[in-house]
């Protein structure tokens, strides 16, 4: 069976995709809240003001959430999923918890999906937590990617949170992913 082709989210996605609290996986006052944020840039290095990012992640214990409620958050349930649109300056941000290792020794990451006007189909990538050099060195994806591009997949820890920029094209282009059974998307 042929998978449905993707199409761009277009310029008016805010209408259909935005909702209150979409980028707050936990309330900002949560004692373990962390800010995951960054900019989306195009091939000229210009900010992309009409992109939307989604993150999907394990909880701090490494459990994969199975609870509904991402669209109407109750303030207590960690659903592991959120969505953020970029602002006019290309900046996006999430308030969330740091994902834990899903197995001992595994490098934790946020699974990230990127959509934008001008981007015909969604892009997949990962934002790894920095810090555990042993786990990062042992990671299958990071090992498969050349050392010159590996850094595009790892968030940096700054005083104002975890920073993960997305470069759609050109210098420092983010490594985007495809999976077996999704390959046809890249013909």
């Amino acid at each position: 069976m042929s998978a449905v082709p993707g199409q761009t989210v277009g310029p008016f996605f805010h209408l259909g995709l935005e909702y209150p609290g979409m980028n707050e996986l936990v309330v900002p006052g949560h004692p373990r809240a962390v800010r995951l944020h960054g900019h989306v840039y195009d091939g000229d290095g210009a900010p992309v003001p009409d992109a939307v990012l989604e993150i999907w992640q394990a909880d701090p214990q490494g459990h994969i959430p199975r609870q509904p409620g991402s669209l109407r958050r109750d303030g207590w349930t960690f659903t592991g999923w959120g969505r953020a649109a970029t602002e006019p300056d290309g900046h996006y941000q999430f308030t969330t918890l740091e994902p834990g290792a899903t197995e001992p020794g595994k490098a934790p990451f946020f699974a990230v999906t990127v959509f934008a006007r001008g981007l015909m189909d969604r892009l997949f990538t990962r934002a790894y937590l920095p810090g555990d050099d042993g786990a990062l060195a042992a990671d299958a994806l990071l090992s498969a990617v050349g050392p010159d591009r590996r850094g595009t997949l790892i968030a940096t820890r700054e005083p104002d949170g975890l920073v993960f920029d997305v470069r759609l094209q050109g210098d420092g282009e983010t490594v985007f992913l495809t999976y077996p059974r999704v390959r046809d998307a890249w013909a």
Binding site: A144, L168, V175
Partner: peptide, 11 residues
């Protein structure tokens, strides 16, 4: 200016 030029990494 909004499409990646590098092939996607299969994983």
């Amino acid at each position: 200016l909004r499409h990646p030029k590098q092939p996607a990494q299969l994983i």
